[in-house]
Amino acid sequence: MFKFTVKYHIRTGQMYMLLSFCMMGVLMGTLIRTNMLLLIVPFLLQKTYLNVLEQGVAPLRLLRISECNIGKIYRSSNLSVMLWSTTGIAVGVMFLIIFDATSSKFEIEPMDIAMQVATFTAQSIMCLTIGNTIDNSDLRTSRWWIIRNYMPQVAYTMFAAMATSLASICALISIYAIAALCAVALVVWLLTVRQHVRINHFETFII
């Protein structure tokens, strides 16, 4: 499943978006010494983070009619997103190293990079957990189209903003705080992703 998701992200171009946003985030973030720039990635790529069942490889109907465990879809799609964003960060860091070697004006602080990566990872895991939960919630099949069409995005944005604030606060405290947040977020992600087994609603609105 992971192989299919990775391919899907390449072929639909979502991987290029993740790569470029993360790369630019690292470069710009290091230039102006902030870890906030990488944190807008989950907002800019909301579709990738939120609409996993619709965007993440398997068509909804196929998931409904087969015996497939949708937790597997969430897990592989989330891991693929993390893989491509980490690759983007790695490419960004590589560029920084090249700039550092060629320019005397520019200096990389390894701690700054570590902080950026840890903050982004913690926030990204939290956003993926939120995205999965909303994606398989009753918001998707509400009787009212306004709720069905807009509430998932609104709810995601609100929770993602909270995740960003939490990650930023931890990043301000120390590298240990952000590392601890990363670990907690990972455990929560693992626990929640295991709870998604079936799509828990009918498809009421199709003809």
Binding site: R61, R64, I65, F202, E203, T204, I206
Partner: peptide, 8 residues
Amino acid sequence: HIVSGIMK
């Protein structure tokens, strides 16, 4: 769709 179990 109803027989397939994808529609209420």
